[in-house]
Design a binder for these strands. Structure first.
Lengths: 261, 261
DNA sequence: ACTAAAGTTCCATTTAACGGAACTTTTTCG
DNA sequence: CGAAAAAGTTCCGTTAAATGGAACTTTAGT
């Protein structure tokens, strides 16, 4: 086991609720000996991966990581483009928009655009939610074949809410519907009272796949407004799909069922 | 020498002009054996520090680094506060604003707010400029003693433009003026035709220091507008300085000399 | 299909990482 | 203020990983 493993584990200790770490944090979080934690933090600081806060004792991510991390968005130009679309739609309609990526069976928020409304959905970047039980997740899973989806869940899954899929068959049915309609929708799944519309996109040149999502309180959004959200999001997504020649993109297909849910 | 050194060196290879690297890139950039470069990149990818672009061969920063890097500005909450002030002033007057930090004799951009004007100053995050020859740099150097500044430049420096300080004495004179006036100003230094106003701030609790800067085309900005920029920026900076109890903050002091340059 | 370039794997050698314990510093609280 | 606890650092021999060279495999160009 390389020291890189430990270093990466240290980086994973940081979160929106933990902006810095100490030797004892590592001991309890990672179960490593004090001696290791002490040397590791110092070594990472000496190499410029971490910085000490003020004089000493507390370590936080370094400027180097901030810079390199910043490049991620540009390197993955799909994210940048998708983020622009979601930002535009979010600005236009005032509801929270974000884009996410899938890592295995989890969905991770990458960028977010907070809405303007008093009652708004708040998501924070870096949060992880289960793929099968979210519109963003199903928008991305829909890009896989049914067999690939089954392979992702060899042991099945447990639905976290009433409206989430309960069985693999149910999930596959909803993925088929997502492919047909060109968008995925959730209601009361991850968060009660919240509805979300998501569309998946993929760059064949890089293999990157992202989900564009608009999330809003179910109670205050009229059917017409929901339709407008779907159309705006689909329009922007379709433009990107055309630009990057995404062959697995599912175009919007509004049948009667979707216009009045 | 630890593998962490090599890993950090790899991260330093990324820049705004190099979004991904290959084995041969590392061989030429870092002079390491092919075998090492190959294993190092794979190890870093396996640990989640890098990602392969599409199928393989090209490596770029990972989502993990993007997330941890994102935390940098929150961990260094001074950056966040300063960014809010610069963003507000930038929105208000339409010119480009950014905040930077000093690393030794270099100034590094951390966040940026592009202006709205057709003729606007464009700076990209992560760019490095010499501290002595920029308003942001002098705003931060002014927080040091003259002896500390001399120690930073044991071999002196070479002015990159007509209006930059040419000697250590000239630099110290301008730093003294910066302390007296409460802001630093540059004109035609890093970029011709560009004028910039900067103010330095420091958090005694963490030791973090940042420079707030508004940058604009010299030709199109009237003296009154320049004064308004100085006042807005100084007002916001003073609020933060009071909040964090920055004892080395230099308050705005507009004498006749500054009001008509 | 052939060749050159790029990337990977294998090997013995060298070097760094490891965990435990002793030691030092900082913090807590009577 | 001073003792005790907590937190952090350093030292040690052992163990495991990193190294560079060369052979080997894959990819790209003509």
């Amino acid at each position: 086991m390389s020291i890189l493993t430990a270093a990466a584990d240290v980086l994973r200790c940081f979160s929106s609720t933990r902006h810095d770490v100490t030797v004892t944090d590592l001991v309890s979080l990672l179960g490593m000996p004090k001696s290791n934690a002490s040397r590791l933090l110092r070594a990472m600081r000496d190499e410029g991966l971490l910085e000490t806060v003020g004089d000493s004792k507390r370590y936080r991510p370094s400027l180097l990581l901030a810079q390199v991390g910043q490049l991620y968005r540009f390197a993955a130009s799909l994210i940048d483009r998708a983020d622009a679309v979601v930002g535009r739609v979010s600005d236009q309609i005032g509801h929270t928009g974000y884009i996410s990526v899938r890592r295995g069976t989890e969905i991770i928020g990458v960028t977010a655009h907070p809405g303007r409304h008093a009652l708004r959905v708040v998501t924070s970047i870096g949060d992880r939610i289960p793929a099968f039980a979210s519109s963003t997740g199903r928008a991305l899973l829909a890009r896989l074949s049914d067999d690939e989806v089954r392979a992702l869940y060899p042991d099945g899954f447990t639905a976290p809410s009433e409206t989430a899929p309960r069985t693999m068959d149910e999930l596959l049915t909803r993925l088929a519907e997502t492919r047909r309609a060109g968008f995925a929708e959730s209601h009361d799944e991850a968060v009660r009272g919240v509805r979300a519309i998501s569309i998946g996109l993929g760059d064949p040149a890089t293999g990157d796949e992202v989900a564009l999502c608009i999330s809003f309180p179910a109670a205050t959004v009229e059917p017409g407004e929901r339709l407008a959200i779907i159309k705006s999001l689909a329009e922007g997504a379709a433009e990107i799909a055309a630009l990057i020649q995404d062959k697995r993109f599912f175009p919007l297909n509004l049948s009667n069922a979707e216009t009045a849910p």
